[in-house]
């Protein structure tokens, strides 16, 4: 069911307008607009508590929200399953079962997503994040970095068209990071779009097209990376602190 033909509409892949999230009487995310074309990558940068993770969770339909989210021109509430089948999510939590092996985790998710050949998909996903050797190890024995890689494998198992990534590089060592970035570049070339929440904008810079700065639950500034010098750019919340 996930391998249906994909009709590319003329407009953007994801159109978000007036997205608002409230919790306990407080507004965590003020009405926010955001668009994402196919193959477009945007980094989301901001201080702690800016609402970055909340934005991703709302887009992943995990928290109640107000406003409109349209995917391929259709409101996602009309076809939530079609939307979720093209969505890959890495949250702060790895969403893996520690008692099960890496292989069992991926096989479970592959089946749940209705991937046509779950075994092949799980094998390929493990290979892509360099964990094939550890397939039979229980996830509970993995290091933080390995868990993060497996979380990425889980998110990309069903070949999503849109990635929501919350600090996907945290805990991953330098060599692993190079591999993951390669994986991201390949995904981008394959027209996969992504929202990438990160504190390390310098690393993300080479891949993303735009940096969106969030502060106090609202978009503060948007910077196109093309034509801007990475070394001279600073997030606005840091600039203020320096002043």
């Amino acid at each position: 069911m996930s391998r249906k033909q994909r009709v590319e509409p003329s407009g953007d892949l994801l159109e978000v307008s007036g997205l608002e999230v409230e919790a306990g009487g407080r507004t965590i995310l003020h009405p926010t607009d955001l668009n994402l074309g196919a193959g477009e990558w945007k980094a989301i940068v901001g201080p702690n508590g800016a609402g970055k993770s909340t934005l991703l969770k709302a887009l992943a339909t995990l928290v109640p929200y107000r406003g409109s989210i349209r995917y391929r021109g259709r409101p996602i509430s009309e076809a939530p399953l079609a939307y979720r089948s093209e969505l890959g999510v890495v949250l702060h939590e790895p969403l893996l079962y520690r008692e099960l092996s890496a292989w069992e985790n991926l096989l479970f998710y592959a089946r749940l997503y209705g991937v046509a050949e779950p075994h092949a998909a799980a094998q390929q996903a493990l290979a892509e994040v360099g964990l094939s050797v550890y397939a039979q190890e229980p996830v509970g024995r993995f290091s933080r970095g390995m868990i993060q890689r497996l979380a990425l494998a889980r998110a990309m198992l069903h070949q999503p068209r849109l990635l929501l990534l919350d600090e996907p590089l945290s805990g991953i060592d330098a060599r692993g990071e190079e591999e993951i970035l390669k994986l991201f570049r390949r995904a981008k070339e394959a027209q996969v779009a992504a929202l990438w929440v990160t504190h390390r904008w310098r690393v993300a810079w080479e891949i993303v097209d735009e940096i969106v700065e969030l502060e106090r639950g609202a978009v503060r500034r948007i910077t196109r990376t093309a034509g801007v010098d990475r070394e001279s750019w600073e997030p606005s919340y840091l600039e203020e602190g320096a002043r």
């Binding site: 069911m1 996930s2 399953l81 079609a82 979720r84 790895p94 520690r98 749940l112």
Partner: peptide, 14 residues
């Protein structure tokens, strides 16, 4: 544990 019940909630099933 670690909010992993949310994992299946992301899958394209009702």
């Amino acid at each position: 544990v670690e909010g992993r019940g949310r994992g299946p909630a992301l899958a394209p099933v009702d």
